[in-house]
């Protein structure tokens, strides 16, 4: 600490009055980093304003999207009201306030993941060292999103029958899609034949579903486990090769409704031996 910092430190701790000064007047760089994140704008995005308006501007929404009544999440929502010295934050406990709720199971699903067991935490993946300690990135960064899962195809022989397996391995350290009920991941597998013609197609959706009584069903991809989807007799109807695509969408669905922001996480292709 330089003498200047040391001095302001002394002032801060001895005159709590100073804590009323906006954080960015001293923590300019931290502020600049955080201001660029989706969290800092969580109550300002077009999607939020629209859905919040339609839902009658429910104040409960702001308990996560803008607990301090601003445009989004701010310093004190994680660090507490202060004053200095602020206690060190523990992760993921700090995040649980907003990322662990019914329908928002990110923290809960993280705790049982292999990533957590191998001492990775939210910050290991969501803070790019080059972006500084408060440059949180997430699904809104397409390059980051493409790291979310791997897709493999294989065919095995099961009692003389051919079975196609599409293996999805999430690399999220929590369920995929992480976050709330509003995201979805789709797997599309196509059997292809001569003339580039589609012979058959199977589609799966991972995310939250709603039951007949409005209850939620969590059908996201579990961390590490993901899913192994099977298709019997992939060579049927003159299929010569298989194409599979894993797609992330910023809306829950249905697939027929386009999502301009969607991102292909992973693609796989294989030739069948006839």
């Amino acid at each position: 600490m330089t003498w200047r910092l040391a001095l302001s430190w002394l002032l801060l701790t001895s005159f709590p009055l100073f804590a009323a000064e906006p954080c960015e007047s001293c923590h300019l760089e931290t502020h600049r980093q955080f201001a660029a994140t989706a969290m800092a704008k969580a109550a300002r995005s077009d999607d939020f304003i629209q859905e919040w308006g339609q839902g009658g501007r429910n104040p409960a929404c702001l308990s996560c999207h803008a607990p301090s009544g601003t445009e989004g999440v701010v310093c004190v929502d994680c660090h507490g009201l202060g004053p200095h010295p602020y206690p060190r934050l523990s992760v993921p406990e700090t995040c649980a306030r907003c990322h662990d709720a019914p329908g928002e199971s990110t923290v809960r699903r993280h705790k049982t993941s292999l990533a957590a067991r191998r001492n990775l935490n939210c910050l290991s993946c969501h803070v790019k060292p080059s972006a500084g300690s408060h440059g949180f990135i997430g699904a809104t960064d397409p390059a980051f999103l493409r790291t979310a899962a791997l897709l493999h195809l294989a065919v095995r022989n099961d009692l003389g029958k051919q079975i196609l397996v599409a293996a999805i391995r999430p690399r999220t350290g929590h369920a995929l899609p992480g976050g709330t009920t509003g995201r979805s991941v789709w797997l599309v597998i196509k059997g292809m034949g001569r003339g580039n013609a589609e012979r058959w197609r199977e589609t799966w959706r991972f995310g939250w579903w709603q039951g007949p009584k409005g209850e939620w069903e969590d059908a996201t991809l579990a961390p590490d486990i993901g899913a192994n989807l099977e298709v019997a007799e992939p060579g049927r109807q003159g299929t010569d090769w298989i194409e599979a695509e894993l797609i992330f969408r910023f809306r829950p669905g249905p697939f027929e409704e386009p999502d301009p922001r969607q991102v292909t996480i992973s693609k796989a292709q294989m030739t069948l031996r006839r």
């Binding site: 999607d47 859905e51 839902g55 409960a60 929404c61 308990s63 996560c64 709720a101 019914p102 329908g103 928002e104 709330t180 009920t181 509003g182 979805s184 959706r205 995310g207 939250w208 579903w209 709603q210 039951g211 007949p212 939620w216 069903e217 059908a219 910023f250 809306r251 829950p252 669905g253 249905p254």
Partner: peptide, 14 residues
């Protein structure tokens, strides 16, 4: 299935 796909982008806290 009897399940349907929700439409809202964020229906937490219910």
């Amino acid at each position: 299935t009897p399940y349907i796909i929700p439409r809202g982008l964020c229906e937490t806290n219910t």
